[in-house]
């Protein structure tokens, strides 16, 4: 995926330079400027993500959200899902195993939903682009909506079974 991005960027730059060196220079300048602009927020994100991964390793997350049930379990799952940044290729197999061991569908749905939609660690970066009001609004709504997703998935899984 990343090599494709580099290939696309290199190709884009080559084509751009062929048609207009001036515009190409301007593009690179813009790229550099936006990068410098987001650097503080980017560093904030990296710091927060790193400490979260260290404090909440996957094994601990699995234990926490796999054992608690009911509304407390959903609440815990929502907090962990919001605070951490786990890629989908780790989160789904984990949720699958936890469900096989008796974890509730609602908890797992709340967990993956907050994991995907709510980002505490990415909030500084999001705010650097859209401002804090929009960021809090989006993340806040997504947080509460995740509980609704939990109920919908719980209903669907219960009916299906």
């Amino acid at each position: 995926m990343t090599w494709f991005l580099y290939l696309a960027a290199a190709g884009g730059l080559a084509i751009s330079a062929f048609f207009s060196p001036g515009k190409t220079k301007m593009s690179l300048l813009k790229a550099w400027k936006s990068f410098i602009n987001v650097l503080p927020a980017l560093i904030a994100m990296l710091l927060l993500v790193s400490i979260m991964i260290a404090l909440l390793p996957e094994r601990l997350i699995a234990r926490l959200i796999g054992s608690e049930s009911g509304i407390w379990g959903q609440f815990l799952a929502s907090l962990i899902g919001s605070a951490t940044l786990i890629p989908a290729f780790v989160a789904f197999p984990m949720a699958k195993v936890l469900m096989q061991h008796g974890a509730g569908a609602a908890q797992m749905a709340v967990f993956v939903s907050t994991l995907m939609m709510v980002g505490v660690a990415t909030a500084p970066l999001e705010a650097s682009f859209f401002g804090w009001r929009a960021t809090i609004l989006r993340n806040g709504m997504a947080y509460f909506y995740s509980f609704l997703v939990g109920y919908v998935v719980f209903g669907a899984v219960t009916i299906w079974a």
Partner: peptide, 26 residues
């Protein structure tokens, strides 16, 4: 983890910003 995360993010972002810069000008 910070070292690994910096490497990951800094690996992805440069081409993203270059492509967005090109998109923005063209």
């Amino acid at each position: 983890m910070l070292g690994i995360n910096i490497a990951t993010v800094m690996g992805i972002l440069p081409p993203v910003f270059i492509l967005l810069g090109l998109f923005d000008t063209w």
